[in-house]
Nucleic acid binder design. Structure first.
Length: 476
RNA sequence: GGCGGCAUAGCCAAGUGGUAAGGCAGAGGUCUGCAAAACCUCCACUCUCCGGUUCAAAUCCGGAUGCCGCCUCCA
């Protein structure tokens, strides 16, 4: 079955077919590196991560390009405020960004181009647009794109120029431009830019925001490529402008599939600094939430559905992850035996549901539902004594596949218990010794001593569970 | 004002014509010295509301209400 995606261009769900069979080129809108990224930003990056993981799962070789916007109004303003050069300032947040995506287990893109490293490419593209007659120099020396020259303008976002755009902005300072909705390709330097400028054939200045994505995507992915993603807010004007710039310059279709993720809200409200519900990843980690729980919350809601981020949900995510983790541990500790037909059937069903849900425009909620159903079925079979290590090995293959697609599995905690020593009655003792002491205490029904030993385990973050096969020590 | 999206239990959330997945939380139970884990049972006769189409609607159509996004570089 083919993968299907909701294509913003045309606003329909379509079968996905790449330009080159077996390969996908995708451009995913990345961060503007002027501050630490917040969970709303990460929702977009996680959606893009799930997208690339699923394409890889289905056998595509993915080339993902994610831009780093390191020159724009905000980066300039903040670097000036901080008294740092633009390069120094943005370097700090580039580093933070890479740390954060690592924390959230977001797979690395193939290329992370920075805008400031691609000024020549942008200049060249702007020159092409000037030659083509769709760009002009405004009264302020900046170069603007004339949207009247591009008949398809508005096709992607569904905006109609006559109705909305012209009337929407009431900005009487826009005298430099022919038309209000024209946008800057190249911004002539002025004093608010400080020492941020490039001397180019276009004059002294800096690139407009939209041009970097056209220039860099085409450099690394070609003039036409498969997928372009971003948050829904980028649809207009950013992506609309990208299409206009790119297609006017090349005469070719820029992108085949556009995908946009919905925003998130926090506790039912729009996330904003003034409401105090604005969170960076780092703030949530400081509150003690695990990276994987945050990932779980961001991953398990369909990307086109507005996500309500709640702390109750975050707590629930921690529990859900523990359940998955317990399940995997269980599969590693099964008795010898033969393959059980019932297990094989449940496994096949779970896998098919999982995969068909993901193929259907990345329906991750349905997909994880199938996975949890398998967990319950298998746990039950295990309780009944109908699950063997052979079954376990097969199921583990699917568990690994689930992890490849979602990145949700906790690290396997092979609690290196032997190395840990406990403090009991002020004395340091080995785990094995403690367990033996506890066994003796329990045999003589000395529950107080037995519980004290369990407490000692708890003090070093370990948990003792009594099972029919004897005590098991696990990390908490 | 223009355009678009969404509304399913305490919370998160799937389901797009055939009679409400899944997770978390909660209640009771099995097992256990106690725990933990796991399992079992219960937890939406109903999908914001009002009409309509249909043998049949959470699903399609119309209307109302509420929330969200875009319409100056915010994922």
């Amino acid at each position: 079955m083919a993968i299907k995606f909701k294509n913003t261009l045309g606003n329909k769900i379509e079968e996905f077919h790449s330009i080159v069979p077996g390969q996908v080129g995708m451009y995913t809108c990345g961060p503007t590196v002027y501050d630490y990224a917040h969970i709303g930003n990460f929702r977009a990056y996680i959606f893009e991560d799930i997208l690339r993981r699923w394409l890889e799962y289905r056998g595509y070789k993915v080339t993902q390009v994610m831009n780093l916007t390191d020159v724009d109004d905000k980066t300039i303003r903040e670097s000036l405020k901080a008294g740092l050069s633009l390069v120094e300032y943005t370097a700090k947040f580039k580093k933070a960004f890479f740390e954060d995506i690592e924390t959230l287990r977001i797979e690395r893109a193939e290329v992370y181009p920075s805008a400031t490293d691609h000024i020549p490419e942008m200049v060249q593209l702007v020159e092409k647009l000037l030659e083509a007659g769709v760009a002009y120099r405004g009264g302020d020396g900046s170069i603007y794109y004339s949207i009247d020259k591009f008949p398809r303008y508005g096709l992607l976002s569904g905006k109609r120029l006559d109705k909305n755009i012209a009337g929407a902005r009431i900005d009487n300072d826009e005298y430099e431009k022919d038309q209000a909705a024209d946008f800057a390709l190249w911004k002539a330097w002025d004093e608010t830019d400080g020492d941020v400028f490039w001397e180019t054939r276009l004059g002294k200045g800096r690139p407009g925001w939209h041009i970097e994505c056209s220039a860099m995507s085409m450099k690394y992915l070609g003039e036409s490529f498969d997928i372009h993603t971003g948050g829904e807010d980028n649809l207009f004007p950013h992506h609309e402008n990208e299409v206009a710039q790119s297609e006017a310059a090349t005469g070719k279709k820029f992108v085949n599939y556009w995908m946009h993720n919905a925003h998130l809200i926090v506790e039912g409200k729009k996330m904003s600094k003034s409401l105090g519900n604005f969170f960076t990843l780092r703030q949530l980690l400081d509150r003690g939430y695990s990276p994987l729980a945050i990932r779980f919350v961001l991953v398990t809601t369909h990307y086109r559905q507005q996500l309500n981020f709640t702390f109750e949900g975050l707590d629930g995510a921690e529990t859900s992850l523990k359940r998955i983790s317990e399940f995997r541990d269980m599969l590693h500790n099964l008795p010898e035996g033969e393959i059980n037909e019932e297990t094989a059937k449940a496994l096949t069903a779970a896998r098919e549901t999982f995969e068909s849900c993901m193929d259907d425009d990345l329906n991750i909620s349905g997909a994880t539902g199938a996975f949890f159903e398998l967990i319950r079925t298998c746990n039950k079979l295990r309780d009944e004594g109908n699950l063997s290590s052979k079954d376990g090995a097969r199921i583990l293959e699917f568990v690994k596949a689930f992890d490849r697609a979602t990145g949700l599995l906790p690290n396997r905690e092979n609690a290196d218990s032997k190395a840990v020593r406990l403090i009991l009655d002020g004395q340091e003792i080995d785990i094995d010794v403690a367990l033996e002491k506890r066994r003796i205490a329990r045999e003589s029904k000395d529950w107080a001593s037995a519980d004290a030993i369990r407490e000692a385990f708890a003090d070093v973050g370990l948990e003792v569970r009594d099972t029919p096969e004897g005590p098991v020590v696990k990390k908490k």
